[in-house]
Design a protein around this nucleic acid. Structure first.
Lengths: 153, 153
DNA sequence: GTATTTGCAAAGCGTTTGCAGGTCT
DNA sequence: AGACCTGCAAACGCTTTGCAAATAC
């Protein structure tokens, strides 16, 4: 689940560069909020990010977490994913990937697949408009929720 | 966009059967709410369903629309799809299909593709848990939002 | 007759916003 | 100085819920 140190360093570098280039400020709060996402492959929601960051930076507020996440998303540093009936999930993995979503607890897991990356969008879809990206969402029940002591959300 | 009359009849039949079998009541309101979804290939949100149904059944309330949509979803008669930052969209097309989502106005359009239906989920995903369904979501900007007089939401 | 369903109103949750004070350059 | 950022609190949009009256079977 943990991101390799080298990749984390790379992500933090991209973050600092991007913000500097746009004239935005890489404040302590923003740094810690981004680090929280960049250091793990989980897809926490805003409240979870807040709970974790507030331990290290007690002065941070929920609003700042929301605003920072929106700002990071605008800069393309993180992605937001909607999950049915739950809060939005955030994700610092900007490489092309797909999602497994647990319909019980709402957890999201990334997976990679070259085969799926190349999937061909039917011609008919082009008639709908300009196509941006395509990704696969697999729904199912994660092992934690199936397991002997399931703790569904 | 309109569903063929024969398909509409079929859907209404399934609705009546399913509710009867489960001991639920096929009230006037529920019938009209389901018909609104079953008669079209759009993916309206709850508010839109309410606005349309209330024209024909002025006595219906928003709460009943929400409750009925939840109930129809429980029975597997409709599907709910989350769209980033917007209200949930509902959909009476229970055949396997995929979605085009407009990132400007949030509209959702169905498309079918045998090639995509057969996409092979990588072995590694099975490790996450029990796999239910897989579907492709294409994001882009619909022609209405690109068009000469774009009216983004 | 009885369990279900409805409308109303109020609360709930996740999220966004206006504002005044504070911070960085 | 000037732009940006923060925390606070209040508002927001979407959705769910408790309750008493109405309804379907």
């Amino acid at each position: 689940m943990a991101v390799p140190k080298s990749e984390l360093q790379r992500r933090l570098g991209v973050f600092a560069d991007t913000f500097r280039r746009k004239g935005l400020r890489a404040t302590h709060q923003r740094m810690e909020i981004f680090r929280e996402l960049a250091a793990s492959d989980e897809h926490p929601d805003a409240e979870t990010v807040y709970q974790r960051v507030v331990k290290r930076v007690p002065a941070v507020s929920r609003d700042t977490v929301y605003r920072t996440l929106a700002s990071l998303e605008d800069q393309g540093l993180i992605r937001r994913t909607a999950v049915l009936g739950g809060p939005a999930r955030y994700d610092a993995n900007t490489k092309r990937h797909h999602h497994f979503v647990c319909t019980k607890c709402g957890s999201v897991k990334d997976f990679h697949s070259e085969a799926l990356d190349d999937l061909s969008i039917p011609r008919s879809v082009k008639a709908f408009g300009r196509i941006g990206s395509a990704h696969v969402q697999v729904r199912g029940v994660c092992s934690a929720c199936i397991g002997p002591r399931a703790r569904p959300r």
